Simulated assay, not measured.
Amino acid sequence: MLAIAAAIVFGLGLLLDLLDASLGAGVSATTFLLLGLLLLALHQAGVGTAGWRGGNWRRRR
């Protein structure tokens, strides 16, 4: 789920960069890039997965 959120954030950042737009003080395409990288890092660390074993919680014996 975090990877999907990261893809959406990267898409918004790309649109802001292509349109040379800014959403106010301190919010730019670079902000969206860094937020997307944070979401990808959390996804790779296993945050938000079902159970501690990466989704294999149903196979407990």
Rank of each mutant, 00 (worst) to 15 (best):
G54T: 10
I8V: 09
L35V: 14
I4T: 11
G51Q: 12
V27S: 03
T30P: 00
Q44V: 13
L42C: 12
G46L: 07
R61H: 12
A41M: 14
H43W: 00
W52F: 15
L35K: 04
A50E: 15
W57G: 09
F32S: 01
L23I: 11
L19R: 08
L37S: 09
V9A: 07
L38S: 11
G51V: 11
A7H: 12
M1N: 08
G54I: 10
S28A: 11
L19A: 07
F32W: 04
G11D: 12
L14C: 02
A41C: 11
S22V: 03
T49C: 02
L42E: 02
F32V: 05
A29S: 08
W57S: 14
T31P: 00
L16F: 04
G48F: 05
L38M: 13
A41W: 14
L38K: 11
Q44C: 14
L38T: 15
R58P: 01
A6M: 02
V9I: 11
A50P: 12
I8F: 10
N56G: 13
A7D: 12
A6K: 04
A29D: 10
M1L: 05
L33K: 05
T31V: 09
W57T: 15
L18W: 15
A29Y: 09
F32C: 09
D20I: 08
L35W: 13
L38Q: 10
G24L: 06
D20E: 10
L33I: 11
L35P: 01
D17C: 04
L16M: 10
G26P: 00
D17N: 05
F10L: 00
D20C: 07
H43L: 00
S28W: 03
G26T: 01
D17S: 04
F10R: 02
L38R: 07
A21W: 14
G26Y: 01
L37K: 03
S22C: 00
L39P: 03
G46P: 06
D20H: 09
F32K: 01
L35M: 14
G11K: 13
I4G: 06
N56S: 14
D17M: 06
G54F: 04
A29F: 06
G26N: 00
V27F: 06
R53I: 10
R59I: 10
D20S: 07
R53P: 02
A6S: 08
G13Y: 02
G26V: 01
N56W: 15
L16Y: 04
H43C: 03
L12G: 03
F10V: 00
H43Y: 10
A45E: 05
A45T: 08
G24Q: 06
I4N: 10
G11V: 13
A5C: 07
A5W: 05
G48Y: 12
V47L: 09
I4C: 06
L18D: 08
G54M: 04
L12R: 05
G55S: 12
R59C: 04
N56M: 15
M1Q: 06
L42Y: 02
A25P: 06
L38V: 15
R61G: 07
T31F: 08
G26D: 01
A21F: 09
T31L: 03
L34A: 05
